[in-house]
Design a protein around this nucleic acid. Structure first.
Lengths: 224, 224
DNA sequence: CAGATTTGTAATACAGCTGAAACAGAATTG
DNA sequence: CAATTCTGTTTCAGCTGTATTACAAATCTG
């Protein structure tokens, strides 16, 4: 999941923050001061920075300015007091949000999700041989040429490409595709759909490469 | 300067807020409840909404959800207490920020500047084929000729143009357009609206190009 | 309040998807 | 190698999902 950089000189706070965020599934790095913080930032830009206003080797505003000079990565200020001047100054140097100690963990998590949501739009595209499937667009391409699948054919292909190299039993397929409506279907129906799908995505449907039959066990999509 | 809509049922607070923000150079409108607030919002979308959590005719969260269904205009929640549950719930429905009473004026102003800065970086006009939609003006043009859409048609188009190339399921559309009031609508109603919209924006409504049907999955707007 | 517009529902039409039947072929079994 | 089981292939009737039209109720506007 997202990578968060904490720049905070109080090691107790940094540690507890780090633990909490790791428990939420984030990967976390910490730095005790601006020098180290900026070094880590440049080494591998994180997805979000939590920045203490008062650092031992300088204040957080200059760090934020430095980050903003090269990046739009979200910065959330941490401060000991709800001091208004700090808040304003923080926003002036381009902070994305501001939260004062002591932190309410769920609020912090919510604010992090919030700033990350604004930036995140990473489309994951499934690939297998010369086939690609973009779930967010329901778009299937074969050799960069769009392939038009029916809804069931699409869901069938999606099931396989989501589990590359995995054996998938006929029962499992039937469940995933048809249990939606609770109904059960004839036994050969699945064969028919396999053929329909293969006719559209395989170069040689008689000798399938993308989805192979494992007789007696099920089917298996090729890896990558 | 920027236009701010305050939705707040306490007229004293609304009045003082309004005065202060006007003195800062903003143009301000106020609404005492969600119904009037959403009407003003749709009438002329503001640049930012200040939204009281507890309104006489319902809570602010549903208003925020309603706003988010058709717009990315920043929403800042106002609350009497620094209650954490409120804060989290506010962010969950897509709030941009959160501030508790009593307000420190400069902080409020800074937060408003902050959310405005985030959005103003992109003067966004949505385009798709020969259609353009300017959210800030609620203006839709086809071949540089204004097209007059009803509120629902507009929100429907906005939903699609905000997600070009993306598959949008019928369920999602129903949620985004009609869950505002929690009511559920008949199944064909959406079909009817798709037709009405297509009749107004497509050159050949029978063979739609802007918004295509993906049978069994949903609809999809063309990219760019 | 009258007229116009918008909104939701019902009725109908229809393309093409869906599921099953029937048959063919291939792999496995004894 | 025959019998059996599993999978592939073709075909087609019926149905589902979407489009279309028409209309009543609700809402807006002057």
């Amino acid at each position: 999941m997202a990578d968060i950089l904490i720049i905070e000189d109080d090691t107790v706070i940094a540690g507890s923050l780090s633990n909490y965020l790791k428990s939420e599934g984030y990967s976390v790095r910490t730095a005790p001061g601006q020098r180290e913080g900026l070094r880590l930032f440049r080494e591998t830009p994180p997805d979000c920075v939590l920045l203490d206003v008062s650092l031992a080797d300088g204040n957080g505003f200059s760090v934020c300015t430095a980050i903003r000079s090269s990046s739009e990565i979200p910065v959330i200020f941490l401060t000991a007091s709800a001091d208004e001047a700090c808040t304003v100054a923080g926003f002036e140097v381009g902070a994305d949000d501001y939260i004062s100690k002591p932190f309410r963990p769920r609020e912090l998590a919510a604010r992090i999700r919030n700033v990350l949501r604004r930036r995140s739009s990473a489309p994951k595209i499934l690939r297998c041989q010369n086939i690609t499937l973009d779930p967010s667009k329901a778009l299937v391409m074969k050799n960069n040429q769009e392939v038009f699948l029916s809804a069931l054919e699409y869901r069938l292909l999606l099931l396989f490409l989501s589990n590359p190299g995995q054996l998938i039993s006929r029962d499992r397929i039937a469940d995933e595709l048809w249990t939606i409506s609770g109904e059960f279907i004839g036994d050969n129906t699945l064969n028919v759909y396999m053929k329909r799908l293969r006719d559209k995505i395989e170069d040689d449907p008689q000798n399938p490469v993308i989805i192979k039959t494992i007789r007696g066990l099920g089917y298996k999509a090729a890896e990558s």
